[in-house]
């Protein structure tokens, strides 16, 4: 029942928002991010899988901020969570982000706003290795807004990210 409804919704979303229904090409390099769940756009099975190039093709956002996990300020470059959600036609309310070591955190979709968090793939113009919290790190612009300097936000700043599931 739920599945039917989900499909119906997905179909409705597809027909109503053709812009977001653009096909997503299949990844050619190593897959570094897999998005599943309530998404309108997919490429492999029911998921949207990205290699680094595909992420870099999306509109990039760059900002400079300090973090509590590093010394000094750093420049982060990545895909805004809002751009990613829009691109994939995410319809759920919550994004469950999971790290390589299976650390998981729930991020409400309301966090995905302009000037909000990004899925960073570069720090100081260099890609990040697993040893440097790579390959992907959800970074909020902590310096731009005190609201981003809370324990909840810090807990949502998941690094070594490799999966996102859009939940209702």
């Amino acid at each position: 029942m739920l599945r039917h409804l989900t499909h119906a919704t997905a179909a409705l979303a597809l027909s109503a928002l053709p812009l977001f229904a653009q096909d997503l090409a299949a990844p050619e390099g190593d897959v570094i991010l897999t998005v599943s769940g309530q998404i309108a756009t997919t490429n492999v099975d029911n998921t949207a899988q990205f290699d680094l190039d595909m992420l870099e093709e999306l509109d990039a956002t760059t900002f400079e901020t300090s973090t509590i996990w590093s010394e000094g300020t750093h420049t982060f470059q990545g895909v805004s969570l809002k751009v990613l959600a829009d691109r994939l036609g995410i319809t759920g309310e919550t994004l469950r982000a999971t790290a390589i070591n299976d650390y998981a955190v729930d991020i409400p979709l309301t966090d995905a706003v302009e000037g909000g968090p990004i899925v960073a793939y570069k720090m100081d113009d260099a890609t990040m290795s697993v040893r440097d919290k790579g390959p992907l790190w959800i970074v909020y612009p902590y310096d731009s807004d005190a609201a981003y300097r809370s324990e909840v936000i810090y807990s949502r700043s998941i690094w070594q990210l490799d999966r996102i599931e859009a939940l209702d």
Partner: peptide, 19 residues
Amino acid sequence: RREFDIFYSRINTLGQASI
């Protein structure tokens, strides 16, 4: 190697993070 990297990243964080 991944387990090593994760642990490395953690220790790195402990060694660098301002908090």
